[in-house]
Computed example of a mutant assay.
Amino acid sequence: MPMDFLRRIEEASFPLAIHEEADIQRAAVLVAAQLIEANLPEPGKGEGRGAVILRITPMGRAELSRLRPQ
């Protein structure tokens, strides 16, 4: 799930290169939701290429805080 992926990269050092197709798809969903900024391969042309996550946006950080148990 994209939110699990967001939690997984929360403490990562950015920029973060990712290469697994499933992670790239999760990152694309998070970009569309404006929770991260990333350079993604063009659809249909990215096979074998990676993506680079530039940062978690303030909206993404807020969502991570909201998901934490209180």
Rank of each mutant, 00 (worst) to 15 (best):
P2D: 03
P2F: 03
M3K: 04
D4S: 07
R7C: 02
R8S: 11
I9N: 06
I9H: 03
A12Q: 09
A12R: 11
A12L: 06
S13L: 11
F14Q: 10
F14G: 08
P15Q: 13
P15N: 05
P15H: 00
P15I: 00
L16F: 08
L16V: 05
L16T: 11
A17S: 13
A17V: 06
A17C: 02
I18D: 10
I18H: 11
H19A: 07
E20P: 01
E21D: 11
A22Y: 04
A22S: 12
A22D: 10
I24Q: 09
I24S: 07
Q25T: 08
Q25H: 13
R26F: 05
A27V: 13
A27K: 11
A28F: 12
A28V: 13
A28C: 12
V29G: 09
V29I: 15
V29E: 15
L30I: 12
V31N: 14
V31R: 13
V31D: 11
A32W: 14
A33R: 15
Q34N: 12
L35W: 13
L35N: 08
I36S: 09
I36E: 07
I36Y: 02
I36F: 09
E37A: 10
E37Y: 07
A38S: 13
A38G: 05
N39R: 14
L40S: 13
L40N: 05
L40Y: 15
P41M: 00
P41N: 00
P41G: 06
E42G: 06
E42I: 11
E42P: 11
P43N: 08
P43R: 01
P43W: 09
G44D: 10
K45V: 05
K45A: 14
K45H: 13
K45Y: 12
G46F: 09
G46L: 01
G46W: 01
G46T: 01
G46H: 00
E47R: 14
G48C: 11
R49T: 05
G50R: 00
G50D: 03
A51M: 12
I53T: 07
L54D: 06
I56Q: 03
T57I: 02
T57C: 06
P58L: 09
P58K: 05
M59Y: 10
M59A: 15
G60C: 03
G60A: 00
A62M: 07
A62E: 13
A62G: 09
A62I: 04
A62N: 05
E63I: 03
L64D: 03
L64T: 02
L64A: 02
S65Q: 12
R66I: 04
R66D: 01
R66Q: 01
R66G: 01
L67D: 02
L67N: 01
L67S: 02
R68G: 03
R68I: 00
R68V: 01
R68T: 02
P69M: 00
P69H: 00
P69Q: 06
P69V: 00
Q70A: 04
